[in-house]
């Protein structure tokens, strides 16, 4: 099993894929930063960090989650690779290993994206001085969010735990897509459903006037007023329950895996 994980893990580090990870970790935050570093009123680096993680990244979040590892698996799946795995190793172990690597890698990429953005904005950018910060005495409004209490303890604690939260959510969306591929056997539907579901729930929460429960505002809680921390776990818990239900009802009961592309 460990051997399989190592093998699958190593497949995820080709030059092309590393460029993709770098683009997600650095490219997207830099792009968003270039849009916002002027023209906004910032008082603290943490506000710049939060604005950098708003807009583009939340919008693309589930798309990015399925792009990190799943293309490798889908290529194998479409080429009937799994049929050949079955004769050589336990398919159950192999699929578990793929699921593990998919979740881990997606989680790590999102974690790094968040933490690197934080370190760059909080510690490096003030040295360069691209952003003009306003004096805190002129601040007339609150910009705190569900995770802000962590920043009051220590900014790095906030960064690490929030990055872990993003990583966890990314892993959950990637796992959803992976399970859907196995359950539905229709690749495009499977990879697009997390994105569709993400926005359907955003929409439902929006029309119910409960944005504090929308996936977008719980993963990136910067566009709404501060909410109790438990609210962010509601969509996440639903996502986890959906993943577990999918596994228990549609994947585990299959007595023999017959995969066809």
């Amino acid at each position: 099993m460990l051997q399989q994980i190592k093998l699958i893990w190593s497949q995820a580090f080709t030059v092309k894929r590393c460029v993709l990870y770098l683009l997600i970790i650095l490219g997207l935050p830099v792009l968003q930063f270039s849009f916002i570093y002027e023209g906004y009123q910032f008082f603290l680096p943490i506000e710049v960090f939060e604005e950098t993680l708003s807009g583009t990244i939340p919008m693309l979040f589930p798309v990015l989650a399925v792009l990190i590892f799943l293309p490798i698996f889908i290529a194998e799946y479409k080429d009937n690779y799994l049929t050949y795995v079955r004769t050589r190793a336990s398919l159950k172990d192999y699929l578990l290993a793929v699921g593990f690597v998919n979740a881990m890698l997606t989680g790590i990429v999102f974690f790094l994206m968040t933490i690197v953005t934080f370190v760059l904005i909080h510690y490096v950018e003030p040295i360069i001085g691209l952003v003009d910060y306003w004096s805190l005495s002129e601040k007339t409004y609150e910009t705190s969010n569900a995770f802000s209490f962590l920043a009051d303890i220590h900014p790095l604690l906030y960064a690490v735990l929030y990055a872990a939260w993003i990583g966890l959510n990314g892993a959950a969306y990637a796992t959803l897509a992976y399970l859907l591929i196995l359950a539905l056997e229709q690749v495009y539907l499977a990879i697009s459903l997390p994105f569709v579901a993400y926005h359907i729930f955003n929409f439902v929460a929006g029309i119910m006037q409960a944005p504090q429960f929308s996936p977008i505002s719980t993963v990136f809680p910067f566009n709404i007023t501060e909410q109790p921390l438990w609210t962010v776990f509601v969509p996440f818990a639903i996502l986890v329950v959906v993943n577990i239900t999918l596994y228990l009802t549609m994947i585990r009961p299959k007595p023999e895996w017959i995969f066809q592309s």
Binding site: F35, L67, P71, I191, S192, F195
Partner: peptide, 21 residues
């Protein structure tokens, strides 16, 4: 034909709906 590009299309188009974009 893999479909990733089509998914990416929605991602990119939805970004253009954001304010200022």
């Amino acid at each position: 034909p893999d479909g990733y590009a089509m998914l990416g299309l929605f991602g990119v188009l939805s970004v253009f709906l954001l304010p200022d974009f």
